[in-house]
Write a protein that binds this DNA or RNA. Structure first.
Lengths: 332, 332
DNA sequence: CTGAAAGCGCTTACAG
DNA sequence: CTGAAAGCGCTTACAG
């Protein structure tokens, strides 16, 4: 394994010059640069990252805590990780994965990784209401950026990127409206999470703007399962509200809606338009395919990395979800 | 940020002694050790990992390429990543994520990460038939271990861990048999992947051992979707074979089976027992829950890390899947 | 059991 | 534009 010194000897220049050829090529005369590059190629030289990091005290590694959460939450995690990894690589960085206990108990792990100079900073996700991590990291002066807001806090510590759930629901409602739907229900969650409230609020606002009924059209499911989505849909149908559109807070709930509709001989897409959330792998594997609001993972990842590796000035980015249209919301 | 030198000064010993306190505490006298540890604690000292890695030329980082594949393949990836991460941490290591083109085009990326000393070795997964990575890495002398066999190769380069699909299918068949099923079909894939052949072979063998019919009971689906699983099930039912059990090559196909059965008024679990593969997040989110063969992710990860960080002698571990029993295979 | 010293492979002011 | 030298923070034979 060649070292800088060997390359320098081979090219008959100083190590400084080789280092410059790699990190500040503009400082070299063209002919010197070419000679050095030839030696680099010939010796198949690859700079030792640890030596560089020791000197510069930057490791070009970003910590990301792999969550160990209920299965449903994970459905879309792979897309995020891939996007995050690709975005990091575009800046010459990589993602270091680690596990940590949830909440404040996990903070020593974050601190340790940073103190040992194993990462330069962190990307946080799976943000919870009153997530303690943001304030903790900010107080410690550890760089981070959050995917998702710490909801209900008026002023959130540190920079974040998030997706506008309210506008997402509004997009879904308008899409259903455009395909001829006039009685559009909403399937939500019980727990008053910021995310859930955001999404239901968008549905309500959009319906009112379009002059559509909202009274009794929103149902809270007890948990995020197909079964609960089906039960909630059944309740709506039984209440005689004669709905022709459904926006669900998650793809899993939407699948429940599809199942219940189909079981009653109501054809999703023809008789009732259905839209889910997050464009999980499920959405394209069912038939008809499920129309769903996709979080723009590539944009999200790009913004996260840009903010984290940038000048760390307060940054807050609210991105729009994209409606991925499939058979479940075909014009009626 | 305290350094080794500062700790040594504070404890009034040499840096060598502090280093030993951390890496070979048995070399110190008890009272010295305690004094050093007090100083470490007091100064909140955390050794700089880059300096250590530079010296020892080991980074304690394991490379893992995040696949960018069809969605279905990913359903179970989170479980694997979490398990892998946890297993690595138990040995003081971490996972470094990266992206690379598939096949041989990705090899320079692997080589580069290793040459720059950013990782000590690799865990390979998503193994394909004739996967070129194993031979390439072995030739380069880069440490790695594979999750999944390079099928059809009689002798595979490098160590691997895999799950015994044939025995898995046999377990499923016997479970269905024990719950009273006597006509057990198999839903498979078209492409003759090693994995698929392994699983269908196990089904066939087990059926024959139990004296169950296999003729015309195995169907190949065109792709891994709910729709195709449903269509295949419909074909089986229409062929008048009067089946009472189904083993599917994937949870997605099994969901298709559940859907088609339900659509025909056949109750899964009561009338027909259904078993899927891989215990994906889908399995517990449907109703009835889907019985499925779970790959023992924690064991797999543990073995992978042990082999990779061990003495690298040829290691081949074939683990058994575990049957996770849910409502879809309730006794008839 | 403990210490002084060399060295891992880089980068970066500083001179020339 | 190029070079000699110091130093990042560790570990590890080697002496004592």
């Amino acid at each position: 394994m060649a070292t800088l010194k060997q390359v320098a000897a081979h090219a008959e220049v100083s190590v400084q010059t080789v280092s410059n050829a790699l990190n500040a090529p503009h400082r070299l005369r063209a002919d010197t640069l070419e000679r050095v590059n030839r030696s680099i190629e010939l010796l198949n030289y690859r700079p030792n990252r640890n030596a560089r990091s020791l000197r510069t005290s930057a490791v070009e590694l970003i910590g990301y805590c792999v969550p160990n959460w209920p299965h449903q939450t994970h459905l879309v995690m792979d897309q995020f990780l891939h996007a995050l990894c690709a975005a990091a690589e575009r800046t010459g960085r990589h993602i270091l994965l680690f596990t940590a206990p949830p909440g404040v108990d996990g903070m020593p792990t974050y601190d340790d990784l940073h103190a040992r100079r194993m990462v330069d900073g962190f990307v946080l996700s799976q943000t919870e209401t009153h997530d303690p991590r943001h304030g903790w990291l900010k107080d410690e002066g550890i760089p981070f950026v959050s995917f998702g807001r710490v909801w209900k806090e008026s002023t959130q510590p540190g920079p974040w990127v998030d997706v506008d759930g309210a506008t997402g629901s509004a997009i879904a409602v308008r899409h259903l409206y455009d395909t001829g739907r006039r009685r559009i229900a909403f399937l939500g969650w019980p727990k008053s999470s910021g995310l859930a409230e955001d999404r239901v609020a968008g549905w309500r606002t959009a319906c009112k703007e379009l002059g559509l009924p909202t009274n009794g059209m929103a149902v809270r499911c007890r948990e995020d399962s197909i079964e609960e989505g089906a039960l909630a849909t059944a309740r709506l149908l039984d209440s005689g509200r004669d709905l022709d559109g459904i926006v669900a807070l998650s793809d899993v709930l939407a699948l429940g809606a599809l199942r219940e509709l189909t079981a009653r001989g109501i054809v999703p897409g023809r008789d009732v338009g259905v839209v889910g959330y997050d464009d999980s792998p499920l959405a394209e594997v069912v038939s008809p395919g499920l129309t769903s609001l996709r979080q723009p993972m590539d944009r999200i990842a790009e913004e996260l990395i840009t903010i984290l590796t940038g000048d760390q000035q307060p940054a807050e980015r609210l991105l729009l979800p994209e409606l991925v249209i499939r058979g479940s919301s075909a014009p009626g």
